[in-house]
């Protein structure tokens, strides 16, 4: 998307008039005037998006005893509780990304083949599910696989016992989060998977290639960079997901996650908030790193096409 976007607008206008110092100055002034309507948005973005991030970095580097240093990061990384939250988030995000890639890739391909009519229903469903979540969704899953949920009861009658771990466990959290991240993965993937041309498959059939061979030699190599990029994106979003984890990981036996720790610290505000700031900066660094990797992989993918 972003690749095609920037192509046609940046061809600056060449002035046809002869240049004088005065017309140059007037030109510059008119350029500034022309840019004026964009200034409010830029200032607003700086105030509400850039400043807050700088404030976080500052707080994470400020020491309680005064001065500046990396002591807060050292403290977080050497505390076993905090390390557990970091590991929990990384593990959750990795599983989530992997599940999305494994289930979402064939799902996106299947939806591409549905044609306009089928997609007209599936796409809105994916849209809504991707921005759903929170307490309502958690409650629905509680009604399904909670201790007295419908599926749990059915299972108990058929096979006996309760096979489902709690929603706050690594299993529960991953199952719940798929409801949001799987649609996001599909929505991200469909445009790039749509670049697989029907003619390639036809050509493969004409040359008597099997379906497996087609996918191994043509289909997969083309979409592989996009699969990698979107899996990475889901990883980043999972690291930062908050609403669902906050709702289901309230009990102490639940998985510990960075975002939930940040949220609890911010709400309690009893202790110093440098731990929350440090965690937030760690998430920022990770997001910047994966964003860079995402762009790099996506450029690779665009080169193939």
């Amino acid at each position: 998307m972003s690749l095609t976007r920037s192509r046609n607008a940046d061809s600056g206008r060449a002035p046809a008039r002869p240049l004088s110092a005065e017309s140059l100055r007037a030109g510059r002034r008119s350029r500034v005037v022309a840019a004026l309507p964009a200034i409010p948005l830029i200032l607003f973005g700086i105030a509400c998006l850039v400043l807050p991030l700088l404030a976080l970095v500052k707080s994470s580097l400020e020491l309680r005893a005064g001065g500046i240093g990396f002591d807060n990061f050292v403290a977080v990384l050497s505390s076993s509780v905090d390390r557990q939250a970091i590991l929990g988030s990384l593990q959750f995000a990795a599983i989530q990304a992997l599940l999305c890639a494994v289930i979402g890739t064939p799902l996106a391909l299947a939806m591409l083949r549905l044609g306009q009519r089928g997609r007209r229903w599936w796409l809105p469903l994916m849209n809504v599910a991707s921005s759903f979540g929170g307490p309502g969704l958690a409650f629905a899953f509680l009604l399904l696989i909670g201790t007295s949920g419908a599926i749990t009861m059915l299972w108990a009658q058929l096979f006996g016992g309760n096979p489902f771990p709690s929603l706050g466990s690594m299993f529960g959290l991953n199952l719940l989060s798929l409801y949001i991240h799987l649609p996001l993965y599909v929505i991200l993937s469909m445009p790039s998977f749509g670049m697989l041309r029907a003619e390639w498959w036809e050509a493969a059939q004409v040359s008597r290639s099997s379906r497996f061979r087609y996918w191994r030699r043509v289909g997969f190599p083309v979409i592989a960079p996009f699969i990698a990029a979107h899996t990475l994106q889901i990883f980043t979003w999972s690291m930062g997901s908050y609403a669902l984890p906050y709702v289901v990981t309230a009990s102490p036996q639940s998985v510990a996650l960075i975002t939930v720790e940040i949220g609890r610290d911010l709400q309690s505000a009893v202790f110093g908030l440098e731990r929350a700031a440090t965690f937030a900066v760690l998430l920022m660094v990770l997001a910047i790193g994966t964003m860079w990797l995402y762009r790099t992989i996506q450029k690779q993918g665009a080169k193939i096409l």
Binding site: G45, L49, L51, P52, G240, A276, A280, M284, M291
Partner: peptide, 21 residues
Amino acid sequence: ALAVVPFALPWLVIAAGMQFT
């Protein structure tokens, strides 16, 4: 560049930053 921020960063981090600011 501004538009990338809310896309890449968790909104919780943005909210936390706002609280600090």
